[in-house]
Write a protein that binds this DNA or RNA. Structure first.
Length: 118
DNA sequence: CTTCTAACA
DNA sequence: TGTTAGAA
Protein backbone atom coordinates (compact mmCIF):
# COMPACT_ATOMS: atom_id res chain seq x y z
CA UNK A 1 0.00 0.00 0.00
CA UNK A 2 1.13 3.57 -0.46
CA UNK A 3 1.53 6.26 2.17
CA UNK A 4 -1.97 7.64 1.83
CA UNK A 5 -3.60 4.34 2.64
CA UNK A 6 -1.24 3.60 5.52
CA UNK A 7 -2.10 7.04 6.84
CA UNK A 8 -5.83 6.31 6.71
CA UNK A 9 -5.45 2.88 8.23
CA UNK A 10 -3.33 4.10 11.12
CA UNK A 11 -4.62 7.59 11.73
CA UNK A 12 -1.05 8.86 11.51
CA UNK A 13 -0.52 11.84 9.23
CA UNK A 14 1.41 11.36 6.02
CA UNK A 15 3.92 13.80 7.45
CA UNK A 16 4.33 11.70 10.58
CA UNK A 17 4.79 8.55 8.52
CA UNK A 18 7.67 10.10 6.58
CA UNK A 19 9.08 11.36 9.86
CA UNK A 20 8.99 7.88 11.39
CA UNK A 21 10.98 6.68 8.43
CA UNK A 22 13.62 9.35 9.05
CA UNK A 23 13.82 8.17 12.64
CA UNK A 24 14.42 4.64 11.42
CA UNK A 25 11.12 3.45 12.82
CA UNK A 26 9.60 2.48 9.52
CA UNK A 27 11.01 1.00 6.33
CA UNK A 28 9.47 1.27 2.90
CA UNK A 29 10.46 0.01 -0.49
CA UNK A 30 10.31 2.44 -3.40
CA UNK A 31 8.36 2.03 -6.59
CA UNK A 32 10.19 2.86 -9.81
CA UNK A 33 8.50 6.21 -9.57
CA UNK A 34 10.00 6.87 -6.17
CA UNK A 35 6.82 6.38 -4.17
CA UNK A 36 7.00 4.57 -0.83
CA UNK A 37 5.46 1.10 -0.75
CA UNK A 38 4.42 -0.36 2.60
CA UNK A 39 3.62 -3.89 3.74
CA UNK A 40 0.43 -4.77 5.60
CA UNK A 41 2.54 -5.53 8.65
CA UNK A 42 3.56 -1.88 8.76
CA UNK A 43 0.09 -1.02 10.02
CA UNK A 44 0.88 -2.79 13.29
CA UNK A 45 4.35 -1.29 13.39
CA UNK A 46 2.90 2.20 13.15
CA UNK A 47 0.36 1.33 15.83
CA UNK A 48 3.22 0.38 18.13
CA UNK A 49 5.09 3.60 17.38
CA UNK A 50 1.96 5.59 18.11
CA UNK A 51 1.47 3.74 21.36
CA UNK A 52 5.05 4.44 22.44
CA UNK A 53 4.77 8.09 21.45
CA UNK A 54 1.59 8.28 23.44
CA UNK A 55 3.45 6.84 26.39
CA UNK A 56 5.96 9.63 26.08
CA UNK A 57 8.86 7.69 24.61
CA UNK A 58 10.97 10.08 22.53
CA UNK A 59 10.76 8.97 18.90
CA UNK A 60 14.42 9.76 18.55
CA UNK A 61 15.39 7.03 21.01
CA UNK A 62 12.84 4.45 19.90
CA UNK A 63 15.00 3.06 17.13
CA UNK A 64 17.80 2.48 19.64
CA UNK A 65 15.67 1.34 22.51
CA UNK A 66 13.78 -1.18 20.38
CA UNK A 67 16.35 -2.50 17.91
CA UNK A 68 14.66 -5.86 18.19
CA UNK A 69 11.43 -4.43 16.79
CA UNK A 70 12.73 -1.98 14.20
CA UNK A 71 15.32 -2.34 11.43
CA UNK A 72 18.38 -3.12 13.53
CA UNK A 73 19.15 -6.85 13.47
CA UNK A 74 21.46 -6.52 16.47
CA UNK A 75 20.84 -8.38 19.72
CA UNK A 76 19.47 -6.49 22.75
CA UNK A 77 22.27 -4.82 24.71
CA UNK A 78 22.59 -4.43 28.47
CA UNK A 79 22.12 -0.70 27.96
CA UNK A 80 18.99 -1.32 25.93
CA UNK A 81 17.52 -3.26 28.83
CA UNK A 82 18.47 -0.37 31.12
CA UNK A 83 16.71 2.15 28.83
CA UNK A 84 13.66 -0.08 28.73
CA UNK A 85 13.52 -0.22 32.53
CA UNK A 86 14.00 3.53 32.65
CA UNK A 87 10.98 4.05 30.41
CA UNK A 88 9.01 1.66 32.56
CA UNK A 89 9.79 3.68 35.65
CA UNK A 90 8.85 6.90 33.92
CA UNK A 91 5.51 5.42 32.90
CA UNK A 92 4.90 4.27 36.46
CA UNK A 93 5.40 7.88 37.47
CA UNK A 94 2.85 8.98 34.88
CA UNK A 95 0.38 6.47 36.26
CA UNK A 96 0.88 7.81 39.79
CA UNK A 97 0.29 11.37 38.57
CA UNK A 98 -2.87 10.30 36.77
CA UNK A 99 -4.18 8.54 39.87
CA UNK A 100 -3.48 11.67 41.92
CA UNK A 101 -5.29 13.81 39.34
CA UNK A 102 -8.28 11.49 39.41
CA UNK A 103 -8.40 11.64 43.18
CA UNK A 104 -8.52 15.43 43.01
CA UNK A 105 -11.32 15.29 40.46
CA UNK A 106 -13.22 12.82 42.62
CA UNK A 107 -13.10 15.27 45.51
CA UNK A 108 -14.19 18.14 43.29
CA UNK A 109 -17.08 16.06 42.00
CA UNK A 110 -18.16 15.16 45.50
CA UNK A 111 -18.08 18.78 46.63
CA UNK A 112 -19.90 19.92 43.49
CA UNK A 113 -22.69 17.40 44.12
CA UNK A 114 -23.10 18.59 47.69
CA UNK A 115 -23.20 22.22 46.55
CA UNK A 116 -25.67 21.42 43.79
CA UNK A 117 -28.12 19.75 46.17
CA UNK A 118 -27.63 22.44 48.82
C1' DC B 1 -5.80 12.92 -7.82
C1' DT B 2 -1.59 11.22 -5.01
C1' DT B 3 3.12 11.40 -3.65
C1' DC B 4 7.90 13.47 -3.35
C1' DT B 5 11.35 16.76 -1.27
C1' DA B 6 12.55 20.74 1.18
C1' DA B 7 11.68 24.56 3.93
C1' DC B 8 9.24 27.92 7.11
C1' DA B 9 4.51 33.70 9.19
C1' DT C 1 3.87 18.75 13.05
C1' DG C 2 1.28 21.43 9.81
C1' DT C 3 1.64 23.36 5.56
C1' DT C 4 3.15 24.82 1.13
C1' DA C 5 5.63 25.16 -3.36
C1' DG C 6 6.74 22.97 -7.67
C1' DA C 7 7.46 18.62 -10.06
C1' DA C 8 6.53 13.80 -11.30
Amino acid sequence: MRIGELSRRTGASVRALRYYEQQGLLSATRTPGGHREYADSDVDKVALVQRLIGAGVPSAKMAQIFPCVFGGRSKPTIEVVADLCEERERINGMIDDLLASRAILDDMITDARVAANA
